[in-house]
Amino acid sequence: MIDFIQNTIDGVMIGASYGLLALGFTVIFGVMRRLNLSYGPTIMIGAYFGTVLYLHFGAGLLAVAAAVVVGAVISGIYVERLCFAPMKAGAGIASMVSSFAIWMQLEQAAVLVLPRHTYPFPPLVTGPALEIGPLLVRPDHLIMLTGALLLAAVVQLALYRTRFGLGLRAVIANPIAANLVGVDVGRLVVLAFAAASAIGGVAGFLVLAVDQQVTPMFGMWATLKGLIAMMIGGLGSIPGALLGGLLLGVVEVHSHWLFGPQVRDLFAYFVLFAFLVARPGGLLGRTIDVELSHRA
């Protein structure tokens, strides 16, 4: 029983990192309906910005965090300009395929800069795990969970309570009408990509500071986990993204404990599969915004 509770706690902590990654995905894919496969790799590029600063200039934790976010935002805007801005609305497949190409490009760029497979990443906090009765909780895990909750609240507020979020939702509901009431659609989409990448940067920094290492494969890992967590949670729902991440983490840790590391990912995909079959909208998914249009 103690094991079960301990595993569930660990799962929630791991799941917080998936939830963090799913947040940015929700803004780009769940809300804006643009499938950006390069999302994870842009975070990875940000992480390399931070690692280079850490290795060669001995930068402190805050400077590394800032570098990760800035690097992710720059490469996020790069991807938007290259893969999404030139494509007409409705050419979603073309954008997705080109974002796959940029994924490869970013991964190769990272390998060129730092050719070894693994590099160290500065730890968030050092020190022993907190003991709560018979249970153990890592302090950096707690920080990550808190970060995930805070970030989700900020994103939720930004989407539903600010002019920027309203503008974004107006663009999604009806791009032509949004343009004709004076919203600069192109500029708003770039801003949204930049914001999503900044969220990804924060997520990536927290995850890597807990892992204390970074590899070029982090991009693929982030895209996969973020995408799965978002789809379990429900397209377009911020609380759903968080919840989906937590559920994914809990399932992974329990299956790891019960059946070993080989079947861990198998269970993750099985949960996704089960949701797609039984509840394609995800945990908290909603119907998408529909354009209002009447024949006069």
Binding site: R163, L166, G167, R169, A170, A173, N174, I176, A177, A178, N179, L180, V181, G182, V183, D184, V185, D289, V290, E291, L292, S293, H294, R295, A296
Partner: peptide, 29 residues
């Protein structure tokens, strides 16, 4: 959007509102 900025606004023959925004939010945008 730049023409709107100069002060040219329009309505549509076929209604094009932002359905999932509230009435006042439609005006705010």
């Amino acid at each position: 959007h730049a023409r709107v900025g100069l002060g040219i606004a329009r309505t549509f023959q076929n209604i094009r509102l932002f359905g999932q925004l509230s009435v006042w939010q439609n005006l705010w945008v």
